[in-house]
Each structure stands twice: as C-alpha cells, then as structure tokens.
C-alpha cells in the first residue's frame, strides 16, 4: 500500500468505519486487519519510538504488537474501544521490553535503554552537525523533565501530547477514571510549566524555524 492509498484509506475510514473494520477483522477477514494495521502503524511506531528511542527496537516491537492484536482481537468485546485497547497492548509490550532490558542490563548482557540520553539515539532525519546538537539538547531537556514526573504522570503526559489521545481514551487505556487522569495531567503540566529551560529552548527553536521559513 503506497502513501496516497494510505492517506485515502485514513480519510475514508475515520471514526465509525474503524469499528466496522474491527468487526470484520474479528471475523477473520485478513484484508480488514491489514487496513487496521495501515491505519494505526504510524501512531504505534511513534508511541514505541518515543519510549524506547531506538528505531530497530521500535520496528520489532511494533511488529510484535500487531501480531498480539491479531491473536487477541477475537477477545475484544467492544469494537468501539479498539484504539484504547490497542494502546494498552502497545504500552504493555513497551513495559515488558524495558523490564527485560533492565534484567539483562543488571547482568551486563545489554545496556539499559530506558534511561538512555540523547547520545544513544540513532541519527535518522537530520544528519547535520547543528541539528544533531539541537536534537541532543532537546532529548536531554525531555529526559530531565520526565525524570521529575511520576510514572503515571509521564504516561498520561505522553499519551496526551505525543500520542494525541483524548482524556477518555487515556482513561480507557490506563484503566483509570477520567478525573484521576486529569489530576495526573494537571501535575505533569505544572512541572512542564515550571521547567523554564525547556520552554525557552522550544521557544527559541520555534522562532528559528519561523525565521528560516520567512
């Protein structure tokens, strides 16, 4: 499926159509499942990449996630809740990955990726020296910010602003009430607001991009 076809599919299959696809996929329709993959692969890869910061690991995990989805899809009771259910599986797989990595790192078999700083992130988009420095700085800001978050605050913050889930979807994904999600998000945003260096960095970068385009 090429990019134009994917975009057309995304436009034509918004909202209620996804439920219909889920129903078909539950019935064993492989085409419907492949369409579901095409619709959600970018956002799931994004979710995984932001939490692992490794392209190869993210590719493998994304593949695993969709295999799990295919395996357990018949167990999904409400097809309207497909997206939170998918995110739940993805988050669980990412947590398993970190747990396994920590265990291996403890015995010196591998390096723990959860606390990896910017230097460990693979270059992919902007190979220029300046861009590399900017990216490193950005990731060090993100690392410092997320270290101040509790685990739940971090999860809710990322799901809201990186993965673009609404409050209801986050609540369903994390099996919490909406008010609990609001509380975690409130605390996380307050910490974000207090981090003036990150705000200044983002403001500067944004201004720089604006100057470049003009």
């Amino acid at each position: 499926m090429n990019l134009t076809e994917e975009l057309e599919l995304k436009v034509s299959l918004r909202d209620g159509h996804i439920s219909a696809l889920v129903e078909k996929a539950r019935g064993g329709d492989r085409d419907a499942f492949e369409k579901l993959i095409a619709l959600h692969q970018d956002e799931i890869f994004r979710l995984v990449f932001f939490r692992t910061r490794s392209k190869i690991d993210s590719e493998d995990l994304t593949q695993d996630i969709f295999l799990s989805v295919f395996k357990y899809l018949p167990q999904l009771k409400d097809s309207d809740r497909f997206r939170p259910w998918l995110y739940r599986i993805a988050l669980n797989r990412v947590h398993d990955f970190h747990r396994k990595n920590k265990f291996l790192a403890y015995f010196g078999f591998t390096e723990s990726r959860e606390d990896a700083d910017a230097a460990d992130i693979e270059p992919h988009r902007n190979p220029g020296a300046l861009d590399t420095v900017i990216r490193k700085e950005f990731w060090s800001h993100v690392k410092r910010l997320t270290e101040r978050f509790s685990r739940m605050e971090k999860e809710v913050f990322l799901l809201r602003f990186i993965d673009d889930l609404n409050l209801r979807e986050i609540a369903l994904t994390l099996h919490r009430s909406e008010s609990a999600i609001k509380t975690h998000l409130y605390r996380a945003i307050r910490k974000f607001k207090e981090d003036t260096t990150l705000s200044e960095f983002l403001q500067g970068e944004w201004q720089g991009e604006k100057d470049k385009t003009s």
Partner: peptide, 11 residues
C-alpha cells in the same frame, strides 16, 4: 524526531 522510513509491520 520520529523516523518516517521505518519497517512496516506485516501479518
């Protein structure tokens, strides 16, 4: 920061 050219999952 997210790479665009990642390996797509396959069934």
């Amino acid at each position: 920061e997210i790479p665009l050219d990642f390996r797509k999952p396959k069934l």
